[in-house]
C-alpha cells in the first residue's frame, strides 16, 4: 500500500493566547486506509501534544469527532485521508458553535436546542404489561430518524445558524420529527407548538446540506418539510 506525505493544515486556537485562530501545518506520512482521526492522533502523539480534538469510538457511532475537513463537515474517524484527493488536508472545528480550543467546540447551545424539543416519548396511553405492538411497517417515517448520533455535523453544515443563532437547527428538528412520527407517541399537538415559531421549521432554507453530510443517513430536511405540512394542516 502506498504511503504518501500529506500536509495537515490545522486550525489552532487558544483563547488565552491567540486573538484569532491561526493555521499550523503538520507533515505526516499516511498509508492507505489511514483515517483523519488516526492522522490527528499521530500528530498529537508524535509532533504536538497540545493539539486538542474530541474522539471516542473511532467507529462512527459515538459522534464525537465531527469537524471541518477540506471544507466539508464530516466525522474524522470515517474519513480516509487518501480518499480526499488532495495533498494538503485542511482541518477546522465544526462551524456555527463557539470554539473552546483548536478543534473542540462548545456543544452547549447544540444540546440545549435538542433538549428544547422535549426529546422523549410521551406515550399515547398507559404502559401495557408487555411491549407496545408496532408492526414492522407501522414505524413509518420514524425509524431512520432514530439513528441520529447527535454529532452536530448537520448543524455545522447548515447555512441558517450563522444569521439566526436561535434557529433550532436540523438535528433538533430531526429529533422532533422522530417523536412526531413515532406511532407510540401521543403528544403531537404539544410537539407541533414547540417548532411553530420563527426559529423552528419555518426558518429552514431547504438546501439539503444537512442531509448530504449526515453520517447516519438521517434526512432532517425531509422531516422539517413533513412537519411544516402537519403545521399547515393545523391551520386549516
Amino acid at each position: 500500500m502506498a504511503a504518501r506525505t500529506f500536509t495537515f493544515r490545522i486550525e489552532r486556537y487558544d483563547p488565552d493566547a491567540d486573538g484569532m485562530p491561526r493555521t499550523v501545518d503538520y507533515d505526516l506520512e499516511a498509508g492507505e486506509g489511514t483515517t483523519v482521526l488516526e492522522a490527528l492522533l499521530r500528530v498529537q502523539s508524535e509532533q504536538d501534544g497540545s493539539l486538542a480534538f474530541r474522539y471516542a469510538c473511532r467507529g462512527a457511532v459515538c459522534g464525537s469527532c465531527a469537524m471541518l475537513i477540506n471544507g466539508d463537515v464530516a466525522l474524522a474517524c470515517r474519513t480516509q485521508v487518501h480518499g480526499l484527493g488532495t495533498d494538503v488536508v485542511t482541518v477546522g472545528p465544526v462551524p456555527n458553535l463557539p470554539v473552546i480550543r483548536d478543534l473542540v467546540v462548545d456543544l452547549g447551545p447544540f444540546f440545549e436546542k435538542d433538549e428544547s424539543v422535549r426529546p422523549w416519548l410521551v406515550p399515547s396511553g398507559p404502559d401495557p404489561e408487555r411491549e407496545r405492538l408496532v408492526k414492522p411497517d407501522e414505524w413509518g417515517e420514524a425509524e431512520p430518524y432514530t439513528n441520529c448520533i447527535l454529532c452536530a455535523s448537520c448543524y455545522g453544515a447548515c447555512p441558517v445558524p450563522a444569521r439566526d443563532p436561535d434557529y433550532l437547527g436540523p438535528a433538533a428538528l430531526a429529533k422532533h420529527y422522530r417523536f412526531l412520527a413515532d406511532p407510540r407517541d401521543g403528544a403531537d399537538e404539544d410537539r407541533l407548538a414547540l417548532v411553530a415559531g420563527e426559529h423552528g421549521v419555518a426558518a429552514c432554507d431547504v438546501v439539503w446540506r444537512c442531509v448530504r453530510v449526515c453520517p447516519k443517513g438521517v434526512t432532517p430536511t425531509k422531516g422539517i418539510l413533513a412537519t411544516r405540512e402537519r403545521l399547515g394542516e393545523g391551520e386549516k
Binding site: D16, D48, S50, A52
Partner: peptide, 8 residues
C-alpha cells in the same frame, strides 16, 4: 504543553 484547558 503547559496549556491547562483540554490538555489531553
Amino acid at each position: 504543553g503547559m496549556v491547562r484547558p483540554l490538555n489531553y
